[in-house]
Design a protein around this nucleic acid. Structure first.
Lengths: 248, 248
DNA sequence: TAGCTTATTGTACATTATACACAAATAATT
DNA sequence: AATTATTTGTGTATAATGTACAATAAGCTA
């Protein structure tokens, strides 16, 4: 059984072409059947789709998410959605807010527990979703028309990320395993939406002890090749717990 | 109608006798009737109580909260609960996490959207709850036996508060309108669970520009009377938005 | 090898953090 | 009125961190 009044939505952020991107889908009831293997869940789900034409429309994109089954833990289910919709697992995923205005979904009372995830689309291989008609990246400032309050949820997630990045080392999840300091700086600039001074940025980030010099360099770039760094998982975990100060 | 699968719980923190306190209640179905005026809601609510003997027990305390009615916005309803259970309104209240393990409530699938509130019990006048058999403050380290996962929720709330207090000026809500610097320091010491240096603490807090000298002093104290301060709502709002740095 | 492009680095100055101890104010007691 | 007990209130030197600012190095291409 699914809980008709509760859904789980994931705002999946990616960092591509020096822009923050969001992964959206066009869910379809027929395809969801593969996910909601239990026939009863599927029938219930179908009924929900039938009541909301927007959900069946080809024109509307929405956040990746579904109704919560009775038998799944909330956090586990968020991971499961991510896995099934994108093939990704073991990625940064965090519950950030539950949206529950009574009119957020027409004709139905649905609360959604929203999570945000951070990945690097170039590094992670997205598998074709088995439950959506279509899944696609959109630049955060070029979003299509979205169903329900998806847009609001996305921008709340962005606000949360913007806060988070100042106090915890989460930004790294948006980068490939090996990255340059310029990439890192650009990432922070994009998230915080402000220009940062290169020398001071480097001084600060290097003083954290979070960066490991891989002794590798970029290749095939038409300019001086930048050094590649990775981040130290031990220090990362420590800073994640203790907090850090990245108000720049 | 109420949503059987969704409840709203409030972790109400108070600062009393230099200790963090939590307000808990013993809810009772018969009394809830006054709150859930719609008969159908009450009947549904009663059924829920009947299924869970712990909810009817005299021995178990729990977080202040009820099931979410179909016709209320989530955030509004949290405020409403607070108002009805304590007589308080316009106080600091913030959603912090939704708890949704499948086994958190026996025999039923209930998610709870948890909020935390900050008040000063000496300053605010708690009205007798019209919907609970009993409402009482407990020191955070002397909690009674609690129903379901209330204890976990309380400690998650405390963790959230501990984080929050480092970056936003929320702590002030726990103090009376006029407070001494010693009270403020003790509050931070209790929340952060560490000793702070008086001179440095005062220097830091005064540099924020958040404090207004009321030109009043304590009276009837058997020692040098401390100056009373209030906090500047304008600066407060600004710092709340911008964030601040109180990692001490 | 010249020229283009981006990466890398240092320093002076200002601000903030930290460590640390004693005098001032008040009520209670003698 | 003097003394005592208790808590408030304050300053300074040093270390660490933040800020403003621009020249040189490296890799590729033509």
């Amino acid at each position: 059984m699914i809980l008709k009044n509760v859904s789980v939505d994931c705002v999946i952020f990616g960092f591509q072409n020096d822009k923050i991107n969001v992964l959206l889908w066009q869910a379809q009831p027929g395809l969801l059947k593969k996910f909601l293997t239990n026939t009863q869940e599927y029938e219930e789900s179908k009924e929900i789709f039938d009541k909301n034409p927007a959900l069946k429309s080809d024109q509307f994109w929405g956040l990746i998410g579904t109704h919560l089954p009775t038998d799944d833990d909330l956090d586990d289910y968020a991971k499961k959605i991510l896995k099934v919709a994108t093939g990704l697992k073991d990625i940064f995923l965090k519950q950030f807010q539950t949206f529950g205005s009574k009119d957020r979904v027409p004709h139905m009372r649905v609360l959604t527990v929203a999570y945000y995830a951070l990945i690097n689309p170039e590094y992670h291989n997205l598998e074709l979703s088995s439950i959506a008609k279509s899944v696609k990246w959109f630049e955060i400032d070029k979003l299509p028309e979205l169903i329900f309050d998806s847009k609001e949820i996305i921008f709340r997630a962005l606000k949360t990320l913007r806060e988070e990045v100042q106090y915890h080392p989460v930004g790294f999840h948006l980068l490939p395993e090996k990255f340059t300091l310029t990439q890192l700086q650009t990432l922070y600039e994009v998230i915080l939406d402000k220009q940062l001074d290169t020398r001071n940025f480097r001084k600060k980030i290097q003083n954290m002890g979070l960066l490991i010099d891989t002794n590798e360099k970029q290749t095939n770039v038409a300019h001086r090749a930048a050094k590649l760094y990775s981040f130290d998982v031990k220090i990362y975990n420590q800073l994640k717990e203790e907090g850090l100060n990245f108000r720049i």
